[in-house]
Design a protein around this nucleic acid. Sequence first.
DNA 1: TTGAAAGCGTTACCAG
DNA 2: CTGGTAACGCTTTCAA
Lengths: 346, 346
Amino acid sequence: MDLNTVEKGGRNAPTLASIAEKVGVSVNTVSRALRAPNTVRPELRRRINSAMEELNYVPNRLAGGLSSTRSDIVAVVVTSLYYSEFASIVDSLQSALLERDMQVMLANTRYDADQEQRLVRSLLSWRPTAVAIIGVDHPPKVVELLKASGIPIIEMWDTGGEVIDTAVGFDHTAVGAAQADHLIAGGYRRLAFVGSVRENDKRAQKRLRGLEDGAALAGLPRIVTHTDQQGGSSELGERLAHELLEYHPEIDAIACNSDVVAFGVLRALKKLGKRVPEDIGVVGFGDNEAASCVSPALTTIRPNRETIGKLTAEAIFARINGVPPSITLVDWKLVVRESAIRKETR
Amino acid sequence: MDLNTVEKGGRNAPTLASIAEKVGVSVNTVSRALRAPNTVRPELRRRINSAMEELNYVPNRLAGGLSSTRSDIVAVVVTSLYYSEFASIVDSLQSALLERDMQVMLANTRYDADQEQRLVRSLLSWRPTAVAIIGVDHPPKVVELLKASGIPIIEMWDTGGEVIDTAVGFDHTAVGAAQADHLIAGGYRRLAFVGSVRENDKRAQKRLRGLEDGAALAGLPRIVTHTDQQGGSSELGERLAHELLEYHPEIDAIACNSDVVAFGVLRALKKLGKRVPEDIGVVGFGDNEAASCVSPALTTIRPNRETIGKLTAEAIFARINGVPPSITLVDWKLVVRESAIRKETR
DNA sequence: TTGAAAGCGTTACCAG
DNA sequence: CTGGTAACGCTTTCAA
């Protein structure tokens, strides 16, 4: 409003004491008026509130947290923020947390194990109420730090492994198997796997394993895999598909590690004069918002990201209230579109 | 490691005092060993470090922040996390901040003004070192809170308006004008605008205005706009395009408020038997990772999100070090692909 | 219903 | 180079 207020700000923001003094009560009473309004006489409460409003009082949660040893910060660790990969998990988690006035402190490891350790340590130093982290495969030191913190740890997205405390996600091996099954049901026999599979992307590795097992179970020849450490992109998909078909022209189906990669694969196939789905079937993973917009429309797996975020928030609340650890499986589904049904097969 | 450690954790984590006691020095010395290692005898420093390692010491930054009145938290406020809209800004910002060991505290307003006020207040209570927020148009109360906080405020993404302190972004009106210019140069004359334009999405409104002005400047008839409050999606784009062409069959070019909407528009046009770019030109905004994968490949505007994130971090550092406020324009570019060049025109 | 006093775990300041 | 001692702003007993 007026410039004086503005200039004063920062250096010496109003404290509970300022309010207390102004109203003529003790710090204590002001504090209670904030946290337990009905333990304070209504008239007094009103005066306190208006004093706060007038001085533009903003509580200092650093002090509050230090004093109460509860911080209401939730540390969230993701491995990527690109391509909607985890953005909507964070989104729904944050929005659910909001109802309890909890804040998200975000860190992104970019699939780097050292970074993960550094970030977790750093995050822990804020004494979060809980940490929500992507995946169940972490370097030993990270696991140790997390365990030693004594707070609820929610591992999200993947449940296929040893969980530290509580997990909300799904089985990525099953996803790979579903890709295989769908391709096989679509009439394809010589499967390949293509995409970015980073050393630390254990989920991608699990999906690949599921795909391999699915093919083996059906008595198909060993699947051809062609991957790269570099991050997924349509350019990568295009390149990998070109290379793949050069060396393995017999391939008639390609499972991709992400939709974006699949988009590039589709582009490569078009350039090579291969018809999809007639000559080659393609299936993606992730259900990118554009999956239905490419042609042919991409058949893919849709993980339930919103639900994972929401259930993670609920798991945090539950754990804080003493509910024992748990593992929650969140459903996903195969979204059948056009890219993996052999027309002749119908 | 061993379960006892684990169980003990949380409740009484090791403090500087624990370390001090163990090593037989004062708390003070331990603190300095951490923050200014070379003010402590090397041998002592080593003993302190190993004691910390052994006890799995994690500093309590709530206490540190309270004491030093510097928190190293950067509050980041976005209006959306979907569709890579701002995810990569957050990504690059966070990664740049990491070098100074600063943490991102994230909030998402989802284009809701009340939410924005609530979130900003809440964020401010953590006494962040700076706040980075999307846009320059905020409710008066938010502006007041932000100003009163006395910390550096970096407004990102948009620079077209009154800035509180410092801004890093671009002029959205110019983007709209560029869309118009490109369509006009492509040989189109009856322009339309389609997409999700929320009441609080001032950037979208500015782009629309730029488009209108561009068309007017070229002496074209008033452009037809067909928008919705609902969030952008390909379904929305498809529906809006259908409706648009039903009432305005004369339209020969559509500028979209986002690529995802444009994807839906392309789908609608295909269903209607309209050829793109021959019959109708389409241009998007955002350069979604799939823009080059739809057919025809989408011509769109590519904002430089990474740069915005990086420069925002730099602006924060600069402001903290007393460098005066500034407005930094970040370039963007028109990525010409196939959807907006009339073949006959060539 | 209200207040006084003792922390919470650091950092800052000043001596030694 | 090291150690006391006082904040930092709030919450938590415990009394009144």
